[in-house]
Design a protein around this nucleic acid. Sequence first.
DNA 1: ATGAAAGCGCTAACAT
DNA 2: ATGTTAGCGCTTTCAT
Lengths: 342, 342
Amino acid sequence: MSRRPRSTGRPTIADVAKAANVSAITVSRVLRTPDRVRKDTRERVEAAIKALDYLPDAAASALASKRTDVIGVVLPSVTNAVFLDTLRGIYDVAEEDNTQVQIANSRYSAEEEERLLRIFLSQKPAGLIITGIDQSNETRELLRTAPCPIVQITELGPDPIDMMVGFDHAAAGAHAARHLADQGYNRIGFLGARQDPRSLRRQAGFHQALEDIGLFDPSRVLFSTERSSVRLGGTQLEELLKADPKADAVLCNNDNLALGVLFACQRTGLDVPRRFGICGFNDVEFMAAANPKLTSVRTPRRAIGRRAMEMIKARLKDPDISFNSEDLGVTLSPRESTARTG
Amino acid sequence: MSRRPRSTGRPTIADVAKAANVSAITVSRVLRTPDRVRKDTRERVEAAIKALDYLPDAAASALASKRTDVIGVVLPSVTNAVFLDTLRGIYDVAEEDNTQVQIANSRYSAEEEERLLRIFLSQKPAGLIITGIDQSNETRELLRTAPCPIVQITELGPDPIDMMVGFDHAAAGAHAARHLADQGYNRIGFLGARQDPRSLRRQAGFHQALEDIGLFDPSRVLFSTERSSVRLGGTQLEELLKADPKADAVLCNNDNLALGVLFACQRTGLDVPRRFGICGFNDVEFMAAANPKLTSVRTPRRAIGRRAMEMIKARLKDPDISFNSEDLGVTLSPRESTARTG
DNA sequence: ATGAAAGCGCTAACAT
DNA sequence: ATGTTAGCGCTTTCAT
């Protein structure tokens, strides 16, 4: 006869409606568009919500409305502190309202990225933020037809899926290389940990800039398969000096490596900056506090996250709005570790 | 007459069913319990899924089944690298299957924590991970009746909401204090940044341990309102030496501060470890690479994250299973920065 | 400003 | 191994 009920027993919108002597839709309006409900009605409903300890069901809402407040973010790594700063920027803007940020970790794999994006898309996200420009063709296809704003962050490229904000990594690498050359170093090396597309492009910029002035030597470029660490910086300095005992400076692909190089120089007795110059990348907090203070390329990580969220929110407000690819640029923070002149 | 349709136009499970000449529930089974579908049927359905580029609707699924694969994680800060390691542990285990980790940022606020938990609960999460033991009474009430496993991480306490994994912060602080005393330091200070409950408990352990041997002096305890940084460590060292010029060691509430103290000692010409001993907290990677190598208290951050997820998964498999409060303990990593003797 | 009815896309329960 | 039916809890559409 009668079918078994399937409910949880938690109060639903109908229970609240009954308690407040209104219809379900009015409760829904109190929750989403309170301005459209008369004050006394609203107050009655709010009281009922409290009394019953009513919690809306997000799934039912999403199913009926075909939308959620979820912003999906795909990062190549959740363990890399550099992406943390971007995340902070994302949260800066997200926390202004009810936006829910959901983070997924692609571990630098394009296939994993695609899988994660499928999961996100099954949730009807309000927007998506993805890192870099090296998506698989399937992913690009998937996203082109996605019914939500999408921002590619951190890098720039010629063919945005939708919107883009970041900076030019090759230019940043070149900038740093020229700084080292300008300071009078002429046997400049490059240290990198695990290669991701952005590291490679930075190295390419470094390569080009030094080649242009006749200072490039491939034997001074070292990439490791290990993940980046302070310890690795020390190890790589040793290797560099083995490859070229007269090497007199390095551009480190990130600041951890640079700090490791500094410690190793201190241990070995290499004077920084006279005998050896050090430049890092990202300019995290400790660079300016080190002894000697470490030169680095300041990247706009937090601003990138913030801007990406702003773009999404603007688009959600006004579907006609869009943005070009935005280049937030980098600046050099020259400090003691490369102050050979002056 | 006829009501207007509301659909998105994206293929639904019914479309797939039609294309594969089966019923909707069979498609559902292919997706969730493929073993219960005959091979040729399954293959027909899978082909239809691919042909139509079908994406399941997570909201509809959640509504019908009253469950999701979401594990909600509430962290006090998404910008603090220490929580990153815990997150890494969580992902280690989450990535073994389809579990979706969702991170929320309470910014050290109990009210915000409660708000975030309400959002999570409205999504019917498979499990929840929350940091610490200082939830508001409302939050505890909310969680006690929640229909999912809950793990409190990082700290231990007497009255778990459900399950718990962490370590004893007071004991850890005491351990470090005794180490410094054992090395012959007797004017030992404590440096902390923004106070959270765990910092306070570490300081309390430090306090007690030194009091027990007659070495405690409150004028050597410094807390800042600033957030932790390497720079702040340097500033606080200055303040400590102003308060007690003969101070001869510090326990730093985290490793950033310890690194800042080291740099400041180098600048001021204080010999580490002879004139001044430094001990950090957490033992992040750079501590062992510094020059001199920095002593720290190694905390099992990644293991905590991993274990929390394991507890949740075990409970989801077998609802009768439970776990006691698990103390993962800490160990000291004694290094050059406190090697005054020997 | 408020309400009635239908339907979102899926899965639980009960068949066969 | 597969199908039928109803219903999950909300919001949309249309009406008053």
